[in-house]
């Protein structure tokens, strides 16, 4: 065989790529969440930093260990483990001990993601799986809230209640909302309230979500339909009885709604593919959130509602299919 010039590359068309990669998307989401993480540290001090570090580093380490143990290529560089870890941390109170944080990271990575086959195959949002398992297994540690003390990093923790649990217990005891909740104040918007790390600053989270929308990492469909449904439903109840049901604005900024609607429900893997499916998904999340918050036994329902809708996602994907271009009458798909 005679020598010849270097071989040409032949690959299937297209021979161009948009440039956005999976790891790039994960990195952008991490970037969008950084201000919220900084806010959490500012409000809750060093304990918050500890939870964040344990969760993020723990998730990455556990994913690497698991992949090594199961003889798979190690893919922690794609950033999805770090993102999961950060979201787990955002779902924990600042007072969580190190072992609770680590357990949360382990649950998210192993039970939430790897047992299903890793990235892209998990039916439920891993961080929410961790949150729910911990909430049910360690109810007291998971609802031990501390009051935010802005800028005082080393201050002693002061136990307090979240606005949502405050309103729920008040309604249960006296039948109407406490004064400071029925008169909504702007301090909630900035996050000066007790809660999980990622629940306290709706405004910063919202700005991060706008960044993601601008970068094209998430689409508007889920956040808008989710938040819209919550606003609409809670608004109806508020109009019926403002003394018993809080203002819709209170719902929007308290608890994990902003985090859930912008970062957890929009999780690519566990949400529907089509735009109509996404709208349906967001509406379902909103419906369940309002129902659980107002009538359930838990004060917060974002995590439960997103997990519920995650379970419905395959069904939505199966029945909400776009009609192919040029096929005018309804055609049977599946």
């Amino acid at each position: 065989m005679e020598p010849r010039t270097p071989l040409l590359i032949v690959s299937p068309s297209p021979h161009l790529h948009a440039g956005l990669t999976t790891s790039g998307m994960m990195g952008t989401v991490l970037l969008a969440l950084l201000p919220a993480a900084a806010t959490a540290i500012y409000l809750f001090g060093l304990p918050a930093l500890r939870v964040l570090l344990v969760c993020v580093l723990g998730s990455v380490a556990i994913e690497a260990l698991w992949q090594k143990a199961t003889d798979q290529p190690i893919t922690v560089r794609d950033g999805s483990a770090a993102l999961t870890g950060l979201l787990v941390a955002f779902n924990l109170p600042a007072s969580s001990p190190w072992w609770l944080s680590l357990l949360g990271a382990t649950l998210a990575i192993v039970v939430g993601k790897q047992v299903f086959g890793g990235l892209g195959h998990n039916p439920f949002n891993p961080a929410l799986v961790a949150r729910i398992v911990l909430l049910i297994s360690f109810p007291s540690a998971m609802t031990h809230w501390t009051a935010p003390q802005p800028g005082r990093f080393l201050a002693d923790a002061i136990t307090a209640a979240t606005p949502l649990s405050e309103s729920q217990s008040a309604v249960m005891l006296s039948g109407h909302l406490p004064q400071h909740i029925s008169e909504f104040s702007a301090r909630y918007l900035l996050g000066s309230m007790p809660g999980c790390l990622g629940e306290v600053s709706a405004l910063v989270l919202f700005l991060g979500a706008l960044f993601l929308l601008w970068r094209g990492v998430i689409s508007w469909h889920i956040p808008v339909s989710y938040l819209g449904t919550v606003t609409l439903l809670s608004g109806i109840f508020w109009l019926m009885d403002p003394g018993r049901y809080p203002h819709p604005m209170f719902h929007l900024v308290s608890g994990g709604l902003m985090l859930g609607a912008c970062y957890m429900a929009t999780d690519l893997v566990t949400s529907p593919l089509t735009t109509r499916g996404m709208l349906l998904f967001g509406c379902g999340c909103g419906l369940f959130t309002v129902l659980i918050r107002l009538f359930g036994s838990y004060p917060e329902g974002v995590a439960f509602s997103i997990l519920l809708m995650n379970a419905v996602t395959p069904l939505i994907d199966r029945y909400v299919v776009p009609r192919p271009f040029g096929m005018d009458r309804g055609r049977e798909l599946i």
């Binding site: 065989m1 010849r4 071989l7 040409l8 590359i9 032949v10 690959s11 299937p12």
Partner: peptide, 22 residues
């Protein structure tokens, strides 16, 4: 001897469709 440097799906049938195989 190879015909070209194939990059794509690791599947013989798919590769065969590009210039009748690498």
């Amino acid at each position: 001897r190879p015909k070209y440097d194939y990059q794509g799906l690791q599947d013989c049938r798919a590769a065969q469709k590009l210039a009748r195989g690498p």
